[in-house]
Amino acid sequence: MVEPSETALLGPSEIRGLADELRIRPTKKLGQNFVHDPNTVRRIVELAGVGGTDVVLEVGPGLGSLTLGLLGTGARVVAVEVDPVLATRLPDTVRRQAPGASGRLSVLAADALRLAAEDLPERPSVLVANLPYNVAVPVLLHLLAELTSLGRGLVMVQTEVADRMAAGPGSRVYGVPSAKLAWYGRARKVAAVPRSVFWPVPNVDSSLVAFERAAPPAGPDRDTVFAAVDAAFAQRRKTLRAALAGWAGSSARAEALLTAAGIDPRTRGEQLTIHDFTRLAAGDV
């Protein structure tokens, strides 16, 4: 494992210096809010449980704050950055701040939403990322679908999004993200992240969500189940009998499928577990 003294993490002055050097002005479009607090980086790495045998997929490394913390564990890091300027500069930052660690870093200038397994030089075992707020859920669902080697992860997202990701049935924020993530495994909110550790300071609160992959429910394929999930929450104020009418072909057909699955047709989508949705979808196959 790399000794801590070999990895110099980035503080506020280093972050501002790099941004000025690269003429970077963080944009809302790309969700760029850079972590400049080394203690926060250390906490994220610790909560992610990253070790020297891991291959970490980092999405949105930005100026390299978290990248350096991950490399400090001895892990290999595959960093995916959509901003070509940042992607080009990251290897040099690592060479300067963490001598000897650059051989364990691979950088791809790519959009994580279009990433495929064959694009990566290695099969990642862990996802650790500061995900842009506007695409956090689509990115996470895409990566879990594409990269079956990912067994666990820790992502930093807007607290409102974190609540939806980790919500269980019956919660007022339980919805499509909650149910679809449950297909892949268990998500839980593990810690809050202060606004003050970012530059620029965001207008929203952030939280860390941990994820552990598990075997999907036995039954229909993912797309079939997800179609039922989407239909159930498209009109969440309606009973499932009404909300699923279009998906099933008619209200009567929806009621029959619900009844066969052991689900009260008068209930609503937020009451159903992913196993309920799987049983429901099985009747329509």
Rank of each mutant, 00 (worst) to 15 (best):
R279Y: 04
A116Y: 01
A261H: 10
W247A: 00
P26F: 15
D163R: 06
E3M: 09
P84S: 12
V197L: 06
V285N: 13
D20R: 11
D119M: 07
V201W: 13
A261L: 07
V225Y: 06
V201C: 07
V56L: 14
V204I: 05
E160H: 03
A109N: 06
T88H: 13
P121K: 01
G151E: 07
Y174M: 04
I44A: 09
V77L: 01
G60T: 02
A227F: 06
S65Q: 04
R195Q: 01
P38T: 08
R23W: 15
L105C: 05
D163A: 10
T7V: 05
I44N: 11
S206W: 03
H275K: 15
E118R: 10
R266K: 14
R76F: 15
S206M: 06
A79D: 00
Q158F: 15
L244V: 01
E122Q: 15
A215W: 11
A75C: 11
L47N: 10
V126Q: 07
A256I: 11
T67A: 10
S171F: 14
A136H: 10
T27K: 06
L10W: 01
T88A: 14
P265N: 10
L47T: 13
W199G: 00
D37G: 15
V128C: 01
V85S: 03
P265A: 12
V128E: 00
L90D: 07
V80N: 06
N33Q: 03
L208W: 00
A87H: 12
L141D: 04
V137R: 01
F277E: 13
L140C: 07
V135N: 05
R123N: 15
R16V: 14
A179Q: 04
S207W: 09
V78S: 10
V155I: 07
W247S: 00
G170W: 01
R42F: 08
V59F: 00
T267A: 06
P220S: 11
P12H: 05
V107I: 02
W247T: 01
T224Y: 11
L144W: 13
R123L: 11
R76P: 11
L10M: 01
S196E: 05
L108K: 03
L71A: 14
Q158T: 03
G246P: 02
N33Y: 02
R253V: 12
L71P: 08
E255N: 14
G74A: 09
R76C: 11
D163S: 06
W247I: 05
Y174K: 14
A191Y: 02
T40Q: 02
A256T: 08
W199M: 01
A252C: 05
V35E: 06
L257S: 13
N203H: 13
R253E: 12
V201Y: 15
V193L: 05
N203D: 14
G170L: 02
P217F: 06
L9M: 07
K180C: 09
G49A: 08
V80T: 08
L30E: 04
D111R: 06
A129H: 09
G219S: 04
T7D: 04
V135Q: 09
N203I: 11
L63F: 08
R123S: 10
G249Q: 11
N203G: 14
A254D: 08
F233L: 02
F34D: 08
P194D: 09
E6T: 06
G103L: 01
L115A: 03
G269E: 08
S250M: 13
L127G: 11
R23E: 08
A252D: 05
A117H: 13
V197R: 02
L86P: 04
Y133E: 05
V50M: 07
P26H: 12
K238D: 09
E46P: 08
R114C: 15
A19T: 12
